[in-house]
Design a protein around this nucleic acid. Sequence first.
DNA 1: CGCTTATACGGAACGATGTTCCGTTTATCA
DNA 2: TGATAAACGGAACATCGTTCCGTATAAGCG
Lengths: 215, 215
Amino acid sequence: MLLDDIETDGSLTPADGTSRPLRADAQRNLSRLVKSARDVFATAGVDAPMREIAEKAGVGVGTIYRHFPQRSDLIAAVFRHEVDACADDAVALLQQHEPGEALDRWMQRYVDFIVAKRGLAASLYAGGPAFEALPAYFNSRFEPALQSLLDAAAAAGELRADARPHDLLRAVASLCMPSSNGDPIPARRLVALLVDGLRYRASAVGLSGQQYTES
Amino acid sequence: MLLDDIETDGSLTPADGTSRPLRADAQRNLSRLVKSARDVFATAGVDAPMREIAEKAGVGVGTIYRHFPQRSDLIAAVFRHEVDACADDAVALLQQHEPGEALDRWMQRYVDFIVAKRGLAASLYAGGPAFEALPAYFNSRFEPALQSLLDAAAAAGELRADARPHDLLRAVASLCMPSSNGDPIPARRLVALLVDGLRYRASAVGLSGQQYTES
DNA sequence: CGCTTATACGGAACGATGTTCCGTTTATCA
DNA sequence: TGATAAACGGAACATCGTTCCGTATAAGCG
């Protein structure tokens, strides 16, 4: 894709070596496009017409293809944007709530993200080379975010200290997978149980006190 | 979809209550279409043009839409056809090989099925109500097939008797999932290890002899 | 502030594909 | 063999992805 880098001041630059910043209207249209694509994908699926995305963003179709030569580039941009939004919520929640409460809320936020973006993730396997960097980006954003929540909760004495973000993220994602039979999985409740299992509780130390990282 | 039932004599009937069998040319075109769609999907993906499928089957596009009003109906039909082919291979392998060998070979066959049909399965989550019966069909065909292999191997004294088909099928499918990092998973080797773990072996009874169904 | 230029925009135009429709063909059965 | 209902084929239409180029405008400069 043409645009990968966000400068520290928030301005966008092309990724092709030339360091000149994008023109102001280009930056505006770009962020409008990603937001519009996110909404349209959510309501009409990833195969939604390009014209509809362009129209909702108030731009012409040509503008889409200039910024995102392939459809997969636009999908990837939306995915990254949503990853950012979810990861950024971790620090916001930490500022607004107690550490344990913040962890609970962010976990549910993460569940919503996984469930909502399953459609994108599915087309992601079929997609070309535009998606190969996404799993790494996913981890690079979510692992530090979750780590900060775990650290805060552990420092407050609410949580055991040996929880590994990578394992937790994968475990929750697995819990959100659709089951092979027809029944929907109560993902939010299962995840709440999982997080509860990480807490210190005097009455259950004998059982829950074991290192979950064993074996 | 219009055609769901296969009579015991192999003839096809409409699923809409009317019991009159399909005309001979309709049956022929129908099976040609499913085979053609399978091949085209395999080479060009599930978004392959309908015209190409029709042409390779030697029929007009109208014929596709008469039998499969929606694209998802055709995908579902191909999926069921492939499930049948894989499940039927179980009895064929049992007739041609020793029980243990038959189990090994069928497991690898199943791995190939899972890997090859990931593309279909992905579009399956996004698809509409045409796909909702497929997971149940998947289980109804594969669980008895694997059970017969496990029974035969257990009767021959080659295998522990407490292996559950449902668990095994899910475990193998999980092993075939793409990893979150980029490296490909050596699925066939892992599955061979898994099946090996089910065997009786005098030298490792202390470890592998535990009930895997515990906990 | 006005001029120049590179950058970005919009939307018509083109080709490819999904889907429908109806005149024609063909299997079935009396 | 002839009547009839079922099925076929592919042209026709609608929609969508993608390209292209004349126009508009932001950025830099005197």
